[in-house]
Write a protein that binds this DNA or RNA. Sequence first.
DNA 1: CTACTATGTGGGAACGATGTCATAGCGGTG
DNA 2: CACCGCTATGACATCGTTCCCACATAGTAG
Lengths: 340, 340
Amino acid sequence: MADLSELRRPTIKEVAEAAGVSRSTASRALAGNGYVAGQVRERVREAARDLGYVVDATARSLKQQSSRLIGVLVSDLTNAFYADLASGAARECRARGYTMMLIDDSGSPDDELEAAEAFVALRVAGVVGTPVSAGLADFLARQRTPVVEVDRQFAEGVVDAVVVDNREATRVTTEHLLALGHRRIALFIDETEWTTGRDRLAGYSDAIAAAGIELDSALVFPTGWDVDAAREAAHTLLSSANRPTAIFAANNVLAEGAWRAAAHLGLQVPRDLSLVSFDDAPWMSMVTPGLTSISQDAGELGAQAIATLLERIADASLPPRTVILSAAITMRGSTSAPLN
Amino acid sequence: MADLSELRRPTIKEVAEAAGVSRSTASRALAGNGYVAGQVRERVREAARDLGYVVDATARSLKQQSSRLIGVLVSDLTNAFYADLASGAARECRARGYTMMLIDDSGSPDDELEAAEAFVALRVAGVVGTPVSAGLADFLARQRTPVVEVDRQFAEGVVDAVVVDNREATRVTTEHLLALGHRRIALFIDETEWTTGRDRLAGYSDAIAAAGIELDSALVFPTGWDVDAAREAAHTLLSSANRPTAIFAANNVLAEGAWRAAAHLGLQVPRDLSLVSFDDAPWMSMVTPGLTSISQDAGELGAQAIATLLERIADASLPPRTVILSAAITMRGSTSAPLN
DNA sequence: CTACTATGTGGGAACGATGTCATAGCGGTG
DNA sequence: CACCGCTATGACATCGTTCCCACATAGTAG
């Protein structure tokens, strides 16, 4: 039984005394390193259990100058994509014997840097993050802390990254719309500076060009970052005289905005509007018709990022690499040939 | 500029030397405690900036015997409820100057205990968790680590908790169904042992009893824990001869299962089946008709739990308290009078 | 002129765990 | 018997930070 009257937490010294050995021996018995007689080891472990001893990771990390902690940084936990990514990363961390420390920087570069500093302060073994600026990789590289960029890259070729094949998946999906007969396909996108936006735009352009259509820059439609902004943007776009017959939404949030706007305007999907989304979300299979979407396995993205990070930690001399996962297109009922 | 040729990370000793002061003075200058001449403080801070110095939190925690870390434990990050809760907790932590450490125990009591041990090892200031057993509060109380149970309680009256008024919200919502004329209302529930399930069952029973109806225990329908199990259970229930005219799903996962089963069976909501859910989820406002549901502000739940924890940390002598948040009913279109 | 306060600085002992090194017993080998 | 290798244990320095104290100086009140 733990001694509840004891105010301070027991240290390894108390465990050693209770077992009648030295601190060194107790340490070896608990960690399983070096020589310890079987009988002694048992006595020490029993003493530790009785006292309710829990190792002080701060002291251990200090002495060992390393920890079994991994920092994970995401932009918005309430977005299922990031939540799934974090969940996959957590799974992989646990499986490898690491503890994950998660921070949500709400997409702010300032918070991102602050989080990176917190990770370094805690002397994490490495960091996985969905960056919102080049600051993350810069700072961590300077601090000699291994980092893996996931989902998007700000330090291509400099640090490891795990991303999906945005360009290819977007191209194929756009071709699907073109094959149905659509000629006015709007690309609904929040930004085109990050690798995600840039590559999705490129895939869209590839398909348009291959179809021999001239790219109408008015159809590359900038939206805001959240559902409401996207909904308003979609409302404007869909109310216009020369409205598109199809919308390709560059992520699940924008797709939600577009969906809501279409519903509000009384447009029927897919009769009046075909809609596809990059990034699958739970609601897309719940609504009628279901949304055709590009499913990135966000959990796998997180898990692969952790795996890549651990390889980097094991061997710092490896050349930087970018792991590219493919994305699958899930056909549902939200696309059909255009009316006119 | 940071000295990139330096292999080891700079310590406060190097900062002190660069600024021409002692470690003590450097420490005071950086932390802002005690007397330091303004000019000296600036010099030290500049030196720290130039060297890229980041405090070693492991050493600081060791010396101070406390940290600015808070452990948060949730059951399933891929469930929007837990993700939102974690996000709210993260927000509150940051606002209060704490760093959040998140672990997902995937609903397993073993993992839960392992996570609690990791938190204690890191000497977190306190823990907030959605418990899956009494083990969490037991262990942490024994370890003298403040803990707040959130969403459900296994240590009622022993440790602090933040929950929603499950009984009242369920009662009111059930009354709404009764008022529409429903008499055969199934309670779709995964468990009735935890406080959440227990109280939701109680609220349901309250309303049934108040309406002078005898509770039909066959209508309290046990489901599994995930969407697929719930869908199968719903399929069975809705295929039966004497099927209910309304379903009250005790959480968002079960509601999803019920919704999918109804759609699969070709049942129209609300004409053939009224459906309400405890716990709002994004898809419930996307589908047609929208689902009438009880919205718990999961983010607020997380934030309140952190606030409660910090009060507990500030004053350990406070009597244990349970904060009860009310839940709001969001009326959408998924209920109507029964056909027959 | 003494005593006292306020301001400023540095020396050094912790905090708890680990791991190197020294030491020692023992059995086997040349 | 000298030597080695193996098992087993403990003493002690160390990791980076903080903070208690001692000490120093200057200004001020009694």
